[in-house]
Simulated assay, not measured.
Amino acid sequence: MSAAEMATPTLVGTVTSAVSSSTSYSCNKPTGVSAGHLLLALQWSAGTIGAVTSGGWAQLQAQSGGATSRVTWLGAGGSEPGSYTFTQTAQPGGAIIIAVAGASLAEPVSASSSTAVGSAVSTPSVTPFGVDDLEVRFAVALNSGQAFTPAAGFTEQADVADGGEGGAMCATRVLSSGSATGTHTFATSGTPSAPHGYTIAITEAPSGRPRIVVATFAARNRAASW
């Protein structure tokens, strides 16, 4: 297997985000998405989120209690729309969409949790499939002061405030080891309420069916392969 065939999955375009107090709103598709790319979406609300976005999106895991959040995924087809619609009750909320090339289109295993460490949201450890996987972490919190600081070694891709109730962050890093990635916290500028953390490790499989692990603090080190 050549180095090119085993290359780390990479981000496509720029991570997109949207916030709204409306019951329905749209978040743009990252630029450059084409058939075979993997899209991940985090949605959260201070109220209740609606049904999973139509068009082939599938839920990985959802969390509730003080806020609601959900991570969904989509294997992009050849005619994806320019934006995707999210629904919620009339409470502030938002969404973040990230697109990855060279990622698995097999259904990932997933879990979720709600853990805070002082003025920070905790995201869990996961054991990746490869030594150069792309790791994606999402952190959500209400009453967070509207700003997150990424853990050391992570690149912030989105830091989104929903107008007074809270917000969310997306951060990524390329792994250099196949060992468990460890728990990492993302600091907020206020005391977080309803903290939700997600960790996703994305790898490319030799068969052309790359594999994904999704874990949270409550179910660290769960893994599946296809």
Rank of each mutant, 00 (worst) to 15 (best):
P124V: 07
P92S: 14
Q91R: 00
V121T: 15
A120L: 03
G118L: 11
G93Q: 10
P92Q: 15
A111E: 07
D132E: 06
P124K: 05
E135K: 12
I98Q: 13
P108Q: 13
P128D: 07
A116M: 10
F129D: 07
Q88G: 01
V136R: 07
A111H: 05
V117Y: 11
V117W: 06
D132T: 13
E135R: 14
Q88K: 13
Q88H: 04
V136C: 14
G102T: 07
A141L: 05
V136T: 09
S125Y: 15
S122I: 04
S114E: 01
I98W: 08
E135F: 10
V136F: 11
V140L: 01
S104G: 11
S83N: 06
G94A: 14
A120H: 03
A116D: 14
I96G: 04
S119C: 11
P124G: 15
A116C: 10
S113V: 03
Q88C: 03
A95Q: 02
I97P: 06
S119L: 13
I96E: 06
S114K: 00
R137D: 13
G130L: 10
V131Q: 03
A111Y: 07
A106H: 05
A141M: 06
S119V: 12
S83Y: 00
F129T: 08
T115S: 10
V140Y: 01
A116P: 07
L105F: 09
G94C: 14
V131F: 02
A111I: 02
G130S: 11
G118V: 09
S114L: 00
S114P: 00
P92T: 14
E107P: 09
S110Y: 12
F138A: 04
V136A: 11
A101V: 08
A101S: 15
A103M: 08
L105K: 10
G102E: 08
I97S: 07
V131T: 13
V121A: 15
P128N: 09
V121Y: 15
A116G: 13
A141H: 04
F86V: 01
V121R: 15
A95F: 00
V109F: 01
G118C: 12
D133Y: 04
G94W: 08
A111V: 04
Q91K: 03
A95I: 02
L105V: 09
T89N: 04
S114M: 00
L134W: 05
D132N: 14
A120F: 02
V117L: 11
T85Y: 06
S83C: 02
I98L: 12
S125L: 15
T85A: 14
F129N: 07
A106W: 04
F86H: 00
G94N: 14
T115V: 15
V136M: 13
F138L: 04
P108S: 14
L134D: 05
A103V: 07
A139Y: 03
S114Y: 01
V100M: 09
G94R: 08
L105W: 09
A99P: 13
P124F: 06
T85W: 06
A106V: 10
D133Q: 06
I98C: 11
I98V: 14
T85N: 13
